[in-house]
Amino acid sequence: MQGGASVRLYGLEWPKESARISRVFDLLVAAILFLAVSGAFHLHYMLTAGDWDMWIDWKDRQWWVTLTPIMAITFPAALQYVFWTKFRLPIAATFAVVCLLFGQWINRYFGFYLWSYFPMSEVIPALLIPGALVLDLALLLTGNFLFTAMSGAFAFALLFYPANWFWLAPYRLPVEVMGQLVSVGDYISYAFTRTALPEYIRLIERGTLRTFGGHSAIIASFFSAFVSILMYLAWWHIGMLLARVVTTPNTLKNFMGLTDKDEPAETAQKAIDRTSLQGRFVASE
């Protein structure tokens, strides 16, 4: 190391200039990651939770409550593996759902409100931040992914319905329309029509959950919480797999006559035989 001022960061000596560049790198990566996760998580979420999270008259007490946390815990779990094991940062879930919310509001405002004329009251996204905070805090306080799954992932789903009830309740007020009882949310989506998404496509509390005490949101939340534990574990491991640096040997270099100095050049036929037989992947941590 050359002479000059240095700083200690987490017990290690850093030249001041390196530390400064590292900080710039932090900000660049954070900005890029924010946009990348916004796009990727939003795409994943639209393809899985999709209409349930899109429309005010799809957010029922059963399917919306069940599906949304299960589909939303995926990216937070995968990112938690990377953020926690590589950097000891307990912010992955919060970061992921803030990115998702950012993508959703951009999509709803520009795509649905300005471009397609839907009122904002019809296309409000769900709020996942309280559950994500608890997921991150569970990892911080337990430091263990299994305990995080059992407590944090469980709470992630369990908090979903009550945390969304804050803003959802006004859309569940009863109104009478043409002599029929409907909720305000039903009427909003009836009035501001989706030409290609008719009423019968919705799944409104289909199933027998209502036979258990009427309010299916509670049972749906617990069911979702149990499945979220499994989803969390699965996606934590997907994060682990995706975080591995995978390389393939450049077998084409043999055809170009490019070989390592200590390696004898091999014939083209030998190279073909070798690549077709092996085709291997070399993984390193």
Partner: peptide
């Protein structure tokens, strides 16, 4: 919550420390 962590050196320093 995010700023609580982002205000400190983030990626390379933490990775090296680990």
């Amino acid at each position: 919550w995010l700023v609580w962590w982002l205000r400190r050196p983030l990626l390379l320093p933490r990775f090296r420390a680990l």
